[in-house]
Amino acid sequence: MSKNILLFVEFFKIALFTIGGGLAMIPLIEDIFVRKHNMLTKEDMLDMISLTQTIPGLIAVNSAVFVGNKLAGWKGSLSAAVGVVFPSILIIILIAKFFPLQDITNPHILAAFNCVRAAVLGMFIVLAVRLGKNILKRWIDFVLFVLLFCLLLTGVSPVWIVIVACVAGGVYETWLKRKYFEGPKT
């Protein structure tokens, strides 16, 4: 089996068996490509995770591109990315065609949906705390955080929040903080 077909099939299966998004795919990717096929190393996985956390965009597609590129160049990236997207498109088009959103009136399904949303909110809080611990380490970090949080409260479009936070955070961490609050690097 050529590597491209293997990538397509494996990522198709990975997408088909994960519920809840790209983050849940990472352990599966590690399982399949590191343990089952022995094609990638643990270090590759760490590189992949740091890539998915910094490049804006979908974790699923990011990791598919990374693995595909490692194994078979850009063609590999393409077949892995198509594989990871394919199940979603098939399933959602079927759902959207036969069960339009406006027609969901069954109270039990709506109740189940509500509980899923609450569970996802819980996951977001866990993720936010994890990221917060990673970012907010010294008192001075909280100053920038409060400033950015005020921007959030003004109800400005999230597009601006992303841009301002990325630029401000990058400039602050790389230049300001090092220069004024941590002293020169020795």
Partner: peptide, 19 residues
């Protein structure tokens, strides 16, 4: 490095927005 750090801040603010 600046981009890596900035991306973390952006992700943090967005996740709070999503909450």
């Amino acid at each position: 490095i600046a981009f890596f750090k900035g991306a973390k801040w952006a992700a943090f603010l967005m996740i709070l927005y999503a909450v």
